[in-house]
């Protein structure tokens, strides 16, 4: 696989504040990488460095094998970007701004533009100052999706969009993925990342704390298990790797490390299983674990 974007040991400070402190991530060709983390963790800073808007203090950052700062002009010909807070000139209409962005990118597909305006149900004749947050976001999305690029950077692209529009966005991203495009998707909508991403990178306080495929990440964490037995279920609590054990009569709910599953099942079968449910960790569980800063 070829690397589309590669970031290694990235550092950036604003005055005394260390915004990024060793950030590394890669986006392979045809891959959708979910980029998640709490507010202020450094997602947008990382993305702005990738766009050549901010200059890094240290580390490497390349897109298409080119330096993001020095060769930003070459890189920008083949990328699309949607910020989390699309801000527009109030006295231009949505349609005018979309056309302008497409043109400044180097031209795009007129039909695709019209198709997307229709899909996202945007009124292009309205002056931008009359748009709600969601509608401004649509303008940014339509402009970015109407042009031909190899690498798409989305920074919380669906903030302010209603669930219907969010679904449309997801469909469009899936189309890009099928066409073999690479995508870096920063988002707070974890279900969105779960549905789209091949790989997830979690950032916290300027550091990457976890990276890998969803399966890999799940493996590192605990599943939630509900178990009811004929015998006294309390015995399960003694198994190594069982946490947060809560018992209600013969039924218990607890979280368990994946490596403890075998021991739990052995013990449970001795007690006589009446009910067994295992829920794998959601991305939200993963996220919360890091969010709370264990």
């Amino acid at each position: 696989m070829t690397e589309i974007a590669k970031v290694e040991g990235l550092r950036k400070s604003f005055g005394k504040f260390q915004a990024l402190n060793d950030v590394s991530l890669t986006v392979e060709a045809g891959e959708v990488v979910g980029f998640i983390g709490p507010n202020g963790a450094g997602k947008s800073t990382t993305i702005r460095i990738l766009l050549g808007v901010l200059k890094r203090d240290g580390g490497e950052a390349e897109i298409f094998g080119k330096d993001v700062w020095k060769d930003s002009f070459e890189i920008h010909k083949r990328i699309s970007y949607v910020p989390g807070d699309v801000t527009l000139w109030g006295n231009l209409t949505g349609g005018e701004i979309i056309d302008l962005f497409i043109k400044l990118h180097g031209g795009g597909d007129k039909q695709k533009r019209d198709y997307l305006i229709q899909r996202f149900e945007l009124d292009p004749k309205k002056k931008a100052k009359g748009y709600s947050k969601g509608n401004r976001q649509k303008v940014g999305l339509i402009a970015a999706l109407s042009v031909e690029s190899d690498f798409y950077i989305f920074d919380e692209p669906t903030s302010g969009l209603d669930p219907l529009m969010e679904a449309i966005f997801q469909e469009e991203v899936k189309k890009l993925k099928e066409a073999g495009k690479s995508i870096l998707l920063s988002s707070h909508v974890l279900s969105e990342v779960e549905a789209l991403a091949d790989k997830v990178v979690i950032i916290r306080q300027g550091k990457i704390v976890e990276a890998g495929s969803l399966d890999q990440l799940r493996h590192l964490t605990r599943s939630t298990i509900t178990l009811a037995t004929k015998g006294d279920v309390a015995e399960i609590a003694t198994v190594d790797g069982v946490f947060d054990f809560e018992q209600k009569e013969n039924q218990a709910t607890f979280s368990a490390e994946n490596k403890a599953l075998d021991a739990i099942l052995m013990k449970a079968s001795q007690l006589g299983v009446k009910k067994f449910e295992a829920v794998p960790p959601t991305l939200e569980d993963l996220f919360m674990r890091h969010y709370k800063g264990e």
Partner: peptide, 14 residues
């Protein structure tokens, strides 16, 4: 400062 240019920086405009 008001983020009007965010998306324009990401185009081939230098």
């Amino acid at each position: 400062n008001r983020l009007y240019l965010s998306q324009i920086y990401a185009t081939k405009v230098t």
